[in-house]
Write a protein that binds this DNA or RNA. Structure first.
Lengths: 194, 194
DNA sequence: TTAATTTCTTAATCTAGATTAAGAGTTTTT
DNA sequence: AAAAACTCTTAATCTAGATTAAGAAATTAA
């Protein structure tokens, strides 16, 4: 098992000794999720944060009319989980699905809490990535209130450049907040080259 | 100066000794902002997190057509700041304005960083409130993608019950993402009693 | 490989919410 | 207290994006 990716990800924000790295790695659980299979079901209590080694996950909710809305994508090197469910330890509304075969390293909430006590630098690490995530959601919310669907599509492309041609268009539509039909129309009209 | 409110707010998540409380309080700067005056201007680098003692602030952005979009309100007992600007120390897009005369306690980024080192429990405190904030923005984003303007108005009412009749309607419209005219129409049609 | 399923496109029609405009309240300024 | 400046409402018209429908492409399953 190659842990260099996750360690490099962490070293962007905190410095760990060899022993701390080893301890951290011992807490991780490897999992391979086949394409289209769920890593988390809405209704479950989320018990892990997951780091994507390869492949791609998407977190989505289903509204009362059965329409899916994509909260986030997690390609290689991103963390994902149902924060609402995990923090409050209540059943969540989020489904997390593999768009194709995906490998993850999972850190349980319990291990994460212990890690904060044993190696307080991890409290800093998760504070920092939570702050960065918060900033991204604040910006996306403002974008949803102020930009046209066309401009939101362009923003999607710059946020997730690796996904533009690898995931189904309807997933992009469910992320930017339009119907697949309308995104198709937009692309035909303005976005020939993407 | 009465610091009982902010200490009670902090004690919801971490326990401090008397000395730690005193140290923390010594770092805070009191400020009174007159109604309609800005605490932060877009274009400035945000240098403080502010805790509202009394009154109410709103954080908003102005889009390319001059329309305002409200990111958040901060009534009594809430924290506010331009996270994007503060964390990256770059000029921000957020204006923070007092809706009426408002009293705040401001913690500078510099003091906040030192506090993490001197009293690591504060790293935990800010991790926790950042997580809660993240969850709220994720939910609001999903609400914006899945709910009608009418349902978003009702959600606003439950999130900020104290503001329904105290702030201008147009500010609520700029928060839920509709024009003031449309909110007025909605209220006339469905929301007689609110 | 064929059939079945899923995804994408095009096009006609429809609607939630925007825009424009103008009058009525309300608050603030002088 | 009058004038100026906001804020709210109502109503007509307009539009970005939804809905419905149906065929074409592409994937997946058998």
């Amino acid at each position: 098992m190659d842990h260099s990716g996750i360690l490099k990800n962490i070293s962007k924000h905190i410095s760990l000794t060899k022993a701390e790295c080893d301890h951290f790695i011992s807490l991780l659980e490897f999992k391979k999720i086949p394409a289209k299979q769920l890593l988390l079901n809405a209704g479950e209590i989320c018990k892990h944060s997951s780091y994507v080694i390869s492949g791609c996950l998407r977190g989505y909710m289903v509204d009362k009319d059965g329409f899916e809305h994509v909260l986030n994508f997690a390609p290689q090197d991103w963390w994902i989980g149902d924060m609402q469910s995990m923090i409050n330890q209540v059943p969540g509304n989020l489904n997390i699905e593999a768009l194709f075969e995906t490998e993850v390293l999972m850190l349980s909430k319990e291990h994460q809490e212990n890690l904060y006590l044993k190696i307080p630098k991890f409290e800093r690490f998760f504070r920092i990535i939570t702050e960065k995530s918060l900033i991204a959601y604040q910006q996306r919310l403002m974008d949803n209130l102020s930009l046209t669907a066309h401009d939101r599509y362009l923003k999607f492309c710059s946020t997730y450049p690796t996904l533009i041609n690898t995931i189904p268009q309807k997933q992009i539509a469910a992320y930017i907040g339009v119907t697949p039909e309308f995104l198709s129309k937009l692309k035909a009209k303005y976005l020939k080259e993407h």
